Computed example of a mutant assay.
Amino acid sequence: MEFRIFTEPQQGASYDDLLAVAQATEKLGFDAFFRSDHYLRMGPGDPNPGPTDAWTTLAGLARETSRIRLGTLVSSVTYRYPGVLAIQVAQVDQMSGGRVELGLGTGWFEEEHRAYGIPFPPKRFSILEEQLEIVTSLWATEPGNTYSFKGQYYELVDSPALPKPTQSPLPVIVGGKGTKRTPLLAARYASEFNVPFPDPGTLPGLFRNVREACVELGRDPDDMVYSTALVVAAGSDEATVARRAAAIGREPAELRENGLAGTASEIVDRIGELREQGVERVYLQVLDLHDLDHLDFIAREIVPQVGD
Rank of each mutant, 00 (worst) to 15 (best):
T78G: 02
A233M: 14
S148Q: 01
T52M: 14
A229P: 00
I298V: 15
L284M: 15
E110N: 08
P51Y: 10
A229V: 04
H113M: 15
P143K: 08
L85A: 13
Y39P: 06
V241Q: 05
G43D: 08
V89Q: 04
F109S: 01
D291I: 12
A32W: 00
P196I: 05
G201Q: 08
A190Q: 03
G107V: 01
E130G: 06
G105P: 03
A246R: 12
T146W: 11
T106D: 07
I118G: 10
T240N: 02
V306G: 07
Y283S: 04
E155G: 01
N145I: 06
L85T: 01
A13Q: 12
Q91L: 11
A20L: 05
R275D: 12
C214V: 07
G218I: 10
S159W: 10
F109K: 06
P121C: 11
T182D: 13
G60P: 07
Q11I: 04
E142T: 15
K164A: 01
L184E: 13
Y79M: 12
A20D: 10
K150S: 13
E142A: 15
E266M: 10
L184R: 14
K180S: 13
E26S: 03
L206W: 01
A213I: 08
F109W: 13
Y15S: 08
Y79W: 12
D31V: 00
E212H: 03
I302H: 01
E257Q: 12
V172H: 00
E64M: 13
L255F: 06
D288K: 11
G103I: 07
C214K: 09
D293R: 14
T146N: 11
V241C: 00
R208F: 04
A54W: 05
A233S: 14
P49Y: 06
P119E: 09
T228K: 04
L102Q: 02
F197P: 03
